[in-house]
Design a protein around this nucleic acid. Structure first.
Length: 109
DNA sequence: GTCTTGACTAAGC
DNA sequence: GGCTTAGCCAAGA
């Protein structure tokens, strides 16, 4: 068994509640990896569809989508986020409002 | 064993 | 706001 990180990261990602987002580094830190942002990305690549992970709730540290604007994945992620009530401005999310803090506190508006 | 790679991040210009 | 550079660290080749 080389990497149980994938499973751990998947678990952490699955814990992100709807309408909330998290950064790669944040997910990694919660899973126990201090600088595992890239490992989080790898875990998402490795993640089978059967898990139905909320991969679209994972953003870059800036709150921007990791994909290139215009790409299929980008648009898919945009749509999924908006469907959950996340406000997107030019492919960017306001982390100050939507970042998941590990608890399920409601958004203040 | 080394070298490259990456759905990243922070700092600097 | 943008682009560049360096740092990071685990996985694969």
């Amino acid at each position: 068994m080389t990497s149980n990180w994938d499973q751990r990261l998947w678990d952490t990602i699955a814990a992100v509640p709807p309408g909330r987002v998290a950064s790669y580094g944040q997910i990694a830190a919660m899973a126990g990896l201090a600088r595992g942002a890239r490992r989080t990305a790898a875990a998402l690549r490795n993640a089978p569809d059967e898990l139905a992970l909320p991969w679209y709730r994972i953003l870059r540290a800036d709150g921007r989508i990791a994909f290139e604007p215009g790409s299929a994945a980008f648009e898919r992620q945009c749509a999924l986020l908006m469907a959950e009530g996340v406000e997107l401005r030019a492919g960017r999310v306001d982390l100050g409002r939507y970042r998941w803090r590990g608890n399920d506190s409601p958004l203040l508006d």
